[in-house]
Amino acid sequence: MNIVVCIKQVPSTTEVKINSETNTLVREGVESIINPFDTYAIEEGVRLKERFGGKVTILTMGPPQADIALKECIEVGADEGILVSDRAFAGSDTLATSYVLSKAIEKIGDYDLVISGKQTMDGDTGQVGPGIAQRLGIPFVAYVSRVDDISDGKMKAERMIDEGHEVVEAPVPCVMSVSKEINVPRLPSLRGKMKAKSAQLTVWSAQDLGIEDNKVGLAGSPTFVMQIFSPKRERQSEMLEGSSAEQVSALCDKLSEMKVV
């Protein structure tokens, strides 16, 4: 079974902090990491390969430095890495990104399953997975928390919805996004590290993929970031004073004014 896992290299957002005096982002020392939600997709790809055979190809779109992320995937069991990189892609939104990735998957050609994380840590949209499925004309299964079986051209899996879980069946090839519950991603192994060290990554440009210029980059992205700003805090805070008992009693008074108590 040939599995394609789509990943993204993102800034480690937990380290992106706001300088409270200047209200600007402090980015110093922020390293690039594999989008944490994608690590579950990589692990699931490797586990499915271990269960059903085949190989795992990691696909990412990004600057040339994203090759580090691909090598990290090989360290934890992936077989190959493909970097789709071109200046023409700069500024692509989710629509343009899913177009580029779907073109790359078409070029890979022989695939049975495409896996992505449920969303990225920086953008938080979760739109690229379904976008790819649509472009490829194959079904999409969101928030998969367990893969029961893949056989006879069908995948049986459990997905998370707001009210609980659903067991669904989808034909393969299909695209699925995985939730955090699906597995615990493994740590790098010695054989993986050695393989990653000597691994030859594939790099494809817009031309390699036969990409239409007006469908990527800023030109191919209908959405546009007009402004950014720090979240505002507008609430008037009141710190309750006194001993613990006094504070609790003051709070109870406030709550009963609100008719909660």
């Binding site: 493994r186 740590l187 790098p188 192994s189 010695l190 054989r191 993986g192």
Partner: peptide, 11 residues
């Protein structure tokens, strides 16, 4: 298990 998976027993 994680140590095994990471190939440390092979060392």
């Amino acid at each position: 298990k994680e140590i095994a998976q990471a190939d440390l027993f092979r060392v």
